[in-house]
Design a protein around this nucleic acid. Structure first.
Length: 343
DNA sequence: ACATCTACGACGCTTAACGC
DNA sequence: GCGTTAAGCGTCGTAGATGT
């Protein structure tokens, strides 16, 4: 915190006033402002904590603003532009239709994808919330009516006050601008993955437009949908890791990965067969890995390594199965070195 | 006083185990 | 054999404890 505070005031000095999030994109070598919100929940809460300002404290105590800021902060850094661009348009115009959303998105993306726009409408209106998110966000975000996305009454009221709308637009603008810097306008399709970018398990739920509750994307290292299997790997296990989950997962080379299934999966089971015959069954296997589960108590995202193809498995092993996969994309040398060197 | 750490429950889903 | 229940998983949020 002490260090964060210092970084904040250093940057404030450069800008000459309390910075906006977008200011961090205008200065070469500026720190990643997301670490301030990672620490405090939102950028607004961080600034309010380090600045002795009554005005900021009032903003922070606003009952309807903070949840909305929190919702979009959790989406940032954006892994795709759809949700933020649509939300921004809705905030500015009061509502947005599917076709207006497509027009707006075509300013940012080479090929706006209609089913994904439709999905983003459902997402923004809370269709994929779990029960705790419903109580947290319900009636505070957006409402879908057929082709239209409307602001919920509380959000609509909030937007009439400039000082409340400003931090929200700053956050969305920051998200969209930094997305463009990282991803440009390329079409990534569905699931919307870019090689060697970072994703959380939850991000993956959004990227593949799942109809399930997003918070269900967690658990035993393997998340499955009809057409896609997502493998999540921690390469470095803590010394006190439980033996039951101490999987022997490792890169055997820049194109080969040894993976162990969840400790309940046998080769005979439905899942086991799909892990082996995924090509025949039309299932894509996606590999995600990270070196450490958390650093300084902050959960780390996974890096996307693209699709993999079954090579062989050890028939002697069950629960867990041990399978060797071939990567479609060779891991870049520097990344491979970083992941495979000992701590 | 405020920051940081620790322990633990909620959450959704799959698979194994159980009861009939 | 079929439906139901329980266990286990990782992440996040938070309450309570400890540190500065």
């Amino acid at each position: 915190m002490k260090y964060l505070r210092q970084e904040y005031f250093d940057f404030k000095k450069i800008i000459g006033r309390i910075p906006h999030l977008v200011d961090f994109l205008k200065v070469d070598g500026a720190v990643d402002p997301m670490k301030f919100s990672t620490h405090s929940g939102t950028w607004l809460e961080f600034v309010s904590r380090v600045e002795d300002s009554e005005e900021l404290a009032t903003l922070c105590s606003h009952q309807d603003l903070l949840p909305v800021l929190r919702f979009f902060t959790d989406l940032t850094p954006l892994r795709r532009a759809y949700e933020a661009v649509i939300a921004k348009k809705a905030l500015e115009a009061g509502q947005v239709s599917l076709s207006e959303a497509r027009d707006e998105l075509s300013k940012y993306l080479a090929i706006p994808h209609l089913p994904t726009i439709d999905y983003a409408f459902d997402f923004l209106s809370g269709r994929f919330f779990d029960s705790s998110e419903k109580t947290k966000y319900q009636d505070r975000l957006f409402i879908r009516q057929g082709q239209q996305l409307l602001l919920a009454p509380k959000l609509s009221q909030l937007c009439r006050i400039e000082s409340l709308l400003a931090p929200l637009l700053d956050l969305l603008n920051y998200g969209i601008l930094s997305y463009q810097l990282e991803f440009e306008d390329a079409d990534y399709g569905v699931p919307h993955f870019k090689l060697w970018e970072n994703y959380t398990m939850r991000d993956v739920a959004l990227m593949c437009n799942t109809l399930r509750t997003h918070s269900s994307f967690r658990g035993q290292g393997l998340i499955t949908t009809d057409k896609d299997f997502f493998m999540f790997v921690d390469l470095h296990k803590e010394a006190d890791v439980k033996e039951s989950i101490n999987y022997q997962d490792k890169f055997e080379g820049p194109r080969h990965f040894q993976w162990e299934s969840p400790n309940t999966t046998s080769p005979q089971s439905g899942t086991g067969q799909k892990l082996i015959q995924h090509e025949k069954q039309g299932i894509s296997m996606h590999l995600f890995a990270r070196k450490f589960r958390e650093i300084e108590n902050i959960a780390q995202p996974f890096t996307y390594f693209g699709k993999v193809i079954y090579r062989h498995h050890d028939p002697e092993r069950s629960k867990p199965m041990r399978i060797s996969y071939l990567l479609e994309n060779e891991v870049p040398a520097d990344l491979f070195y970083e992941l495979t060197t000992k701590v």
